[in-house]
Design a protein around this nucleic acid. Sequence first.
DNA 1: TGGGGTGATATTTTT
DNA 2: TATCACCCCA
Length: 669
Amino acid sequence: MADLNAHQKSAVHYIDGPLLVLAGAGSGKTRAITRKIAYLIQECGLAPHQITAVTFTNKAAREMKERVSDLLSSEQTKGLKISTFHTLGLNILRYEHALTGLTPGFTILDAQDAEALLKELCKKSHSDEINEVRAAQWCISSWKNNLLSPQQALSQAEDELVADTARLYADYQRTLQAYNAVDFDDLILRPVQLLLSEPEALERWQNRIRHMLVDEYQDTNLCQYELIKQLVGVRGALTVVGDDDQSIYAWRGARPENMAQLKKDFPRLKVIKLEQNYRSSGRILRSANQLISNNPHLFDKALWSELGPGDPIRILACKNEVHEAEQVAMEILHHRISKRTKFSDYAILYRGNHQARLFEKSLRENNIPYFISGGTSFFARTEIKDVMAYLRLLANPDDNAAFLRIINTPRREIGASTLEKLADYARQRGESLLNTCNAFGLEEHLSSRPRERLQQFSHWFQQTQQRAESDDPIAVIRTLLQDIDYQGWIDDNSANRESAKRRWDNVEELITWLNNLHKGELQEKSLAEMVNHLTLMDVLERQNEEEKSDQVTLMTLHGAKGLEFPHVHLVGVEEELLPHHSSIDEDNIEEERRLAYVGITRAQRTLTISYACKRKRFGELIRCEPSRFLKELPEEDLEWSGRKSKLSEEEQQKRGSACLSSLKALLAE
DNA sequence: TGGGGTGATATTTTT
DNA sequence: TATCACCCCA
């Protein structure tokens, strides 16, 4: 405990009731949480399995696990439950499946699968009003996050479109149940419904959890909060850590009000503030504080630091967006040489993903290694989704979504009209598509050729299912892929050799992951368990690999939360971009300000903010204003570059080449 | 079934 | 401007 400050210590030691830790940016909240877990085990006599800690991302969960195991022996951490909300929900559902009408092999549909299913359902019945499936999906998701049933949603609907969407929601939930499937939101929602309606289950889980810890608490939505409340019960053994100034997910249902709500629901709530910042130098911190003081606050908090003032904050005014990207690349090259830093000390943070492209270009042109965090995840790739769909169907024969995905991949000459007839008959019999392939009486609906094809598939699949019951899962998967010659299918369907190779490598990597899960410490036994585990996972392992090498990090402000970098470039700090124009329209400047605040507080030693005066947008060149947030920073801590000297373009070019030659001189040195 | 043409549409994203 | 989904046709 020696390396904790007094406030951190009291947060760790306080176990008499519910505790809210208001942890400012860089105040060592992860340290406090991990110490508290260690304290509960070592000093308070709790067994590791009685402690549940939840985070929002796999990455955060993994980091927390690592840091706890640095403090404790492996014996002391055995059974400790540190996971994401969704994994916690999955575990509850898995254990209590009998009470929910799900069978153990149930499928988790990811957002993509769910969208495809909704599209399908729309086509069938709700077509007229709903032409925006994604909007409907978003709407249904927020209903779920706000604990609204389809009936409630319908009764609250104010117009026909919403009413239709509510009916789609009802249809969607029915279909999911029929498929023996849940979506991501259900992983939280269904456990909540279960705990509310089944007192025995509630008691079981409340007894199991003797202390609960929640990270990034300001990001919880209503449904997640309800889950916490149910699990904690009257005992109130709860520690939550959060920072309302870093709430940047209100747009997807997060409720920073949950921090205030806690006080109402747990009157005994103790509040501890962590205000000493260990990350950033003084000027950076002062700027952040001053910026965020323009927002109203639920709780007052004043961050301070002992790290000394540090460098002023550089503001780069750039001619246009191309220029901005070049400048930033130049600055990084220059700075790295003169300060003898590593590329991995730098991060370029931006509001929207599309901004990455320009920086990618300029970094590449200057031979600066970089990696872009975000983008298509491993599990969204077609080849991975295909293989996963085969596995899903093995685990859950009712998973019609998986069936539809793979029935004609690779090609089996089973077309849309065949499937439609099959689906009609399946609905009539109340059975899954897979089952219906062999159903009695199918010949009345389908002519012999397509029927034979379906039966051939189903026959082969049955054999595979049988093998899956006894054989090693990995061997089953390998045989399955050989049977369908999936590698051949990839070869035939890739643009070129390289992409074919890459895609097959991805499949191999998936198998490696499955293998690790199977042999790993968690001992995931069944295919279903492994498949569900993988659905909730993401790129974390490979991201990890990339972080290790010396590269500049490019990511969105949202992606940067929870991270820190010695040198940060905050780019595109313009009106309409940060704050984003849609937030300006919706009068939601505060969240944008918090976003800027998150960006600033990522910086440890230097912060460079840049903006362009002109920018191409949707094909046309528009004039840009520097962000209003710049005016909210303390002028005396800023160092302007570019704007105040009214250089002609020509002269700027000269300066650019002067910069380049001085750089070359440095390199030669 | 896949390619090419067409028209809509441009945040943030985890699980 | 650039992308992407969708539709139609060969």
